[in-house]
């Protein structure tokens, strides 16, 4: 009986794992990784997100200017509107709508870096925040 239950639990966990692997976030990340031609690095993503960049607009030198340095807490726009946390553990909808993700990477990378982010940078950031 215990063995059967254990087997069932394993099967359920596997099924859940498969469902997750096929989710839109993984597809998005896989796309960025493929485009970058190299595996994503969560550590690099964190460093990139927290760094102070130059080349962008004067009031937004870092991603943390609006999202804060703690991805599990809420951020704030320059006009004072709250921004939901970026960490997937707190905001499960993050990185599940590719058009939304692309729109904000385009805008925010332009504001912060004065250029679009590369596929590798996007992969790193998504990998880091997915694990948070």
């Amino acid at each position: 009986m215990t063995r059967i239950l254990a087997a069932l639990a394993v099967a359920a966990a596997l099924a859940a794992g498969t469902a997750l692997a096929a989710g839109p976030r993984d597809t998005l990340l896989a796309g960025y990784v493929a485009e970058a031609g190299a595996p994503a690095s969560a550590a690099r993503g964190e460093a990139f997100f927290k760094a102070t960049h130059s080349g962008g607009k004067p009031d937004t030198a870092s991603c943390t200017a609006c999202h804060t340095a703690d991805p599990r807490s809420a951020g704030r726009t320059r006009a004072g509107k709250p921004i939901e946390p970026m960490a997937v553990s707190v905001s499960p909808d993050r990185f599940t709508d590719p058009a939304k993700v692309e729109k904000w990477f385009r805008r925010n990378c332009n504001s912060v870096l004065g250029r679009e982010c590369t596929a590798a940078e996007k992969a790193d950031v998504v990998a880091w925040l997915t694990g948070q």
Binding site: K57, P58, D59, T60, R78, R106, R107
Partner: peptide
């Protein structure tokens, strides 16, 4: 360049 941000 929307009040100092990209809102394109």
């Amino acid at each position: 360049d929307h009040f100092g941000e990209d809102a394109s």
